[in-house]
Nucleic acid binder design. Sequence first.
DNA 1: CTATATCCGACTTCTTCAGTCCGCATTCAG
DNA 2: CTGAATGCGGACTGAAGAAGTCGGATATAG
Lengths: 152, 152
Amino acid sequence: MLKLTKKADYGLMALKYLAEHPENPALSAKDVADAYGIPAQLLAKILQLLTKNGLLKSHAGMNGGYALARDAREISAYEVIHAIDGPFFITSCTKGAKSCELTPSCTIKEPLARVNDTIAGVLKSISIQDLAEHEQPAHRQHAAQRLVALTL
Amino acid sequence: MLKLTKKADYGLMALKYLAEHPENPALSAKDVADAYGIPAQLLAKILQLLTKNGLLKSHAGMNGGYALARDAREISAYEVIHAIDGPFFITSCTKGAKSCELTPSCTIKEPLARVNDTIAGVLKSISIQDLAEHEQPAHRQHAAQRLVALTL
DNA sequence: CTATATCCGACTTCTTCAGTCCGCATTCAG
DNA sequence: CTGAATGCGGACTGAAGAAGTCGGATATAG
Ligand code: FES
Ligand code: FES
């Protein structure tokens, strides 16, 4: 419940790794998988997904591999999750109109949609670069929490 | 991925329903289930969970049922989700020390833990009363998003 | 040509979620 | 006292999704 899939997790880790090694023009799926000890074939598929969604550039053949398609600052965690796991919905029923059978009765959907948007906003505001920086400016985190608590 | 379970959804709906009917001293699981068209036995178990965690008061026997244990303003969405689905973790690995095998390699965990805390904060700031009020002050939502975007 | 890559679909396995069933305990109306 | 209505709680089944594997096709550098 409300958990990131391992795939999304792996994807974020891989992008972070690429962001930390800008000197290499291309790192293979195996390189990254070995670095983190995660299944190579699985990671490969994830990277393919990210490529298909324009977050990575790929190069086949020897010495091939993947590289970030954009600057690490221009790739958000939201994009990664969306590319790997598809549309982002906290609730079982997608907001898009008719999909839910018990729509007439359930008035809970709207407030939850607001929560959904807030979470999406937070994820959109986090870039791969942020993940790659080991420094965690804690004060910014606290400020954000204060503000969220105040305003919702 | 990153979805609320239906149980948590049902739980929120039920609490909202109870909050909207304060005149009744006790509504049975069946009453609420019928009102929303959800499986009665399933809802029953959910309400039992909420009772065990101190969010509801129950009364067995004829004309028995459930009532809010506290004021609707004093029950947060976070509590409901926690009571039904257990501890709240966005990531596969619980932050509590050793549980994750690939901890040495994965440095992604910490930033994600911050996201986790932020989401938890948002959920804690939402009360059952908020859900029961049909008015949605949209401007507050927008303000929150702006602030989150600015500060993270 | 060959080794190393990406690419892509099908597949198995495992876990979790959703929902059901059944027996027991509690309370109250008659 | 008795029985209907209700909560309580474990065991169970089926469906869905996630995690991971396999095999083959294609591209490319040396
Ligand atoms: S669960 Fe679909 S409208 Fe509420
Ligand atoms: S997944 Fe466990 S430490 Fe990152």
